[in-house]
Design a protein around this nucleic acid. Structure first.
Length: 618
DNA sequence: TTTAGGG
DNA sequence: CCCTAAA
């Protein structure tokens, strides 16, 4: 469904030969706009002079414009420069932009120039978009050539004329175009009427009798009159050139404008594939779906700077990144943004400048939110769905869960939870008492695998915990992450969770049972319920314990050595245990020997340890 | 992936 | 506690 406009500025040789296409376009509602390629290869609206010249060419029949088929392939061949095509061609000679093309407007187009020289331009047009949308006043209605003629003779009415006709002359004319439903029906006009309209539109008379031609010219003229052309065409390179337009716009009273277009929600889905350098996208100003076409405009001022945001360019679907950013900044931006979109003071300028109309209702499709901010005030639809957090997911989301429900593996958890109150473990208590902020998930479950011994221990541990709690370990026991004063360059202590005595005991036990170095095993078997302790943590802790024990025991009373006390004082007997274990391990690293003997030793040790604990706690 | 070690 | 080699 695209309309392809081939612009062959055939140089000398008439490539336009292709255009055997049956000339049709009879009732073609499509409006064409004359454009040209400027020195930079950009597509810009043709100047009035150019338009006139082309018109002359058309009159002279030197230029063929044909629309073929339903796809409305339009080819316009023009000879410029070297090969004079008409008397008027001369005007173009020497100009840096001899190449002219005819674009179908009123529909979404994507223009791709295959030839770097811009010899060939493809325009994809959506039929849904009719000129009407592009035409001033069209906001309310459509301009249709094919529309059922309503009234008899039609003449431009004042309003239309004001907007569209740039002709100082002919003002008297006032052909009155009856607006039926806002549509201008040219079809019903007689040749004479059309000529009048032509004059009103272009400010000059024409002798052409061909209705189709007249209609086309008129529509083109109307279209050109609008700033639309200027803003509508966008070059891929992100730059929009309006300059050529100036003349036109000056003469024209462009109260209307259409520039930046926001794609309808539906259209937003379309992916833009324009990759070609030469591609130009024309934004549909409205869509057939009936979404209110909002016309925005951009050029008000910064033509040069906004490259990407060029309104002209079809608004592209916001990238995820973009969306995310918006989401983040949303709170702060939301308020002011709207204003910003409309902010261009210049917008009000009658001539040349188009008025921006913030797009307001998009909501047809719930999938999108309209944001008026960002992107230079263009309304942009953002899929509201995707609010994706960009940053790393919170590491311990379990923290958020009440009572660490999250961590535990189901069955175990319930088991323990119900039967015993390990929850009362220090972690929990700490969490409750000390910090409002949630602590990481407290271990909930106890490993099933716990041997009777371990259970026994656990019970003891509970006691420990209670003791500790009463004692006041909690001060430093923060749930987890200490807030981060990043601004200062402050260091954030990510998360520090003091080792509780019970944990230490478990660790010691684990080491005794499984051997030092088998941290993962210990972790898995003995610390299953302590999800926040990793094997590395165990290792580190063990290392610390080892150091502590070494420092302490040799003298028999190392405590006084002013070494910084662990947050939780470790009972001497535990340290001694640690020492023992360390000795054993140094002697027979479990990891090195797979002998049963070693293991037996370990088990023996564990038992021993258990006994110790029992004695201690009991 | 786990372990060992340094920071 | 984190990070990272090394295995």
């Amino acid at each position: 469904m695209g309309t392809v406009v081939d612009m062959d500025h055939m140089v000398g040789n008439d490539e336009a030969g292709d255009e055997d296409f049956p000339s049709q376009d009879t009732a073609d509602p499509v409006v064409y706009q004359l454009v040209r390629v400027d020195g930079n290869g950009r597509l810009v609206p043709a100047t009035d002079d150019e338009v006139i010249a082309v018109e002359d060419l058309l009159e002279d029949d030197k230029c063929k414009i044909t629309c073929t088929d339903a796809d409305q392939t339009l080819e316009c061949s023009l000879n410029y420069g070297s090969e004079p095509c008409g008397s008027n061609t001369a005007e173009f000679e020497g100009s840096d932009q001899p190449q002219l093309g005819v674009l179908e407007v009123g529909t979404e187009k994507q223009i791709t120039s295959h030839d770097p020289d811009m010899g060939y331009i493809e325009v994809d047009v959506k039929h849904e978009d009719k000129i009407s949308k592009l035409v001033p006043n069209a906001i309310d209605g459509n301009v249709c050539q094919s529309g059922s003629p309503d009234g008899g003779s039609k003449h431009l009415d004042g309003s239309n004329k004001a907007n569209t006709s740039n002709s100082p002359v002919g003002t008297d004319f006032k052909p009155d175009f009856s607006l039926l439903n806002g549509e201008i029906h040219l079809d019903s006009l007689s040749v004479k009427d059309l000529q009048e309209v032509f004059q009103a539109t272009f400010g000059r008379k024409t002798s052409v009798k061909d209705k189709q031609w007249l209609k086309r010219r008129i529509i083109m003229g109307l279209t050109n009159s609008c700033d639309f052309s200027t803003t509508t065409l966008v070059m891929v390179d992100n730059r929009v050139v309006k300059k050529g337009k100036d003349e036109t716009s000056q003469s024209i009273d462009s109260t209307v404008l259409v520039d930046c277009v926001v794609t309808s929600a539906i259209e937003a889905d379309e992916s833009l594939t324009a990759s070609d350098d030469k591609q130009i996208e024309i934004q549909p100003i409205g869509n057939a779906t009936g979404i209110q076409s909002s016309i925005t405009q951009d050029n008000c001022e910064s033509n040069d700077t906004d490259t990407e945001q060029r309104p002209v360019k079809r608004v592209r679907k916001p990238t995820r990144r973009y969306i995310e950013e918006l989401s983040e900044g949303e709170s702060r931006e939301s308020g002011a943004q709207i204003a910003s979109s409309v902010e261009h003071p210049a917008c009000d300028q009658p001539s040349t400048e188009a008025c921006v109309r913030p797009i307001q209702n998009f909501g047809l499709d719930r999938r999108y939110l309209t944001r008026k901010d960002s992107l230079g005030g263009f309304g942009i639809q953002v899929p509201y769905v995707s609010r994706i957090r960009r940053s790393r997911p919170r590491e311990n989301f379990m923290t958020l869960m009440p009572n660490g429900m999250g961590i535990s593996t189901g069955p175990e958890n319930s088991y323990l939870a119900s039967s015993k109150q390990f929850h009362n473990d220090s972690r929990n208590i700490i969490k409750k008492s000390s910090s409002p902020r949630c602590s990481q998930e407290p271990p909930v479950a106890y490993p099933d695998r716990c041997t009777p011994e371990t259970e026994k221990e656990t019970i003891q541990l509970e006691k420990e915990v209670k003791l500790k709690n009463t004692e006041s370990l909690k001060d430093n026991s923060d749930g987890e992450v200490v807030t981060v004063p990043t601004a200062n360059g402050g260091m954030r202590r990510k998360h520090h969770r003091p080792w509780t005595l019970s944990e230490v005991v478990k660790l010691v036990e684990g080491v005794a049972k499984y051997g030092a170095g088998r941290w993962s095993e210990i972790k898995r078997l003995a610390f299953a319920s302590y999800s926040y302790r990793t094997s590395v943590d165990l290792k580190d802790k063990w290392r610390n314990l080892l150091r502590a024990s070494m420092a302490e025991s040799p003298t028999g009373n190392g405590m006084q050595n002013s070494r910084k006390q662990a947050s939780v004082p470790i009972p001497a007997h535990i340290l001694s245990r640690v020492r023992e274990l360390s000795d054993i391990q140094t002697q027979v690293p479990p990891s090195l020997s797979s002998s049963k003997l070693v293991k037996r030793n370990d088990s023996d040790k564990s038992v021993h340890i258990v006994d110790v604990h029992v004695s201690y706690f009991d």
